[in-house]
Amino acid sequence: MLVAFILFLVIVGSIVFHFWTPWWWTEVASNWGNIDDTIILTFWVTGAVFVAVCLFMSYCVWRFRYKEDRRADYEPESPRLEWFLTILTTIGVCALLAPGLIVWNKYVTVPEDAVDIEVMGQQWYWNYRLPGPDGKLGLTDLRNITEDNPFGMNLDDPNGLDDILIEADDLHILLGQSVKVNLRSIDVLHDFYVPQFRAKMDMVPGTVTYYWFTPTRTGDFEILCMEYCGTGHYAMKGRVLVDNEEDYKEWLSEQINFEEYMASLNKTELIQLALNNKETD
């Protein structure tokens, strides 16, 4: 009696907690609101199953509690019931899977108008690279990394000259402009994640991974590293600001590109090849 009642309370408590919880996701700041929708859908379908199964169980515990003079039923199986439950479950699973895969398809298909940017993770901070006026990111190679060339830019690639480099500073992006985030790591695994954007992907040394999103409201958001990357993992944070056009332009004008960066170090001779290639183009 008491057992059934406590089990019942656990279920009711869970439902109450779900509807009254103060802990819920942050207000979405990107186009991935439909990820939230798939979560809500999953909540309804699976929550219904959870509540139904557990309530049925606590009912049985109460209704069929032990009595000396009663015999349990003898029923090895019931193919009809089992088929019915199989089909019902399959339908439920399809209802979860189909919308999920549709949204996933969208997630992995980058729109044409998305602007490439690069995020480069290293223990334990973030660097960024924007393509500059030519809209192309220059090629990089990890083997090029030296003190003078922290991004490992290829020194003969003219596309890299106007790339804007941001080392361990805030990233700004433009409101409403889709971005394809190219993710690169130079040491261990990292993961570039902003809770309000919902999207994430690991960065793996040796390859470039990506995801895309469109920021839908301005603001100042916190970046977290979401893939364990060593002792400083928890401190690997950064900031990304979604600006309107005016603020963004102003910020952009304050940044320096690779060519200017090398000039500031008096190492212009290192990128002579790239400069030559640029002229011959």
Partner: peptide, 8 residues
């Protein structure tokens, strides 16, 4: 469900 896994 792959897309739900992304934020979680």
């Amino acid at each position: 469900n792959v897309i739900v896994d992304v934020p979680l």
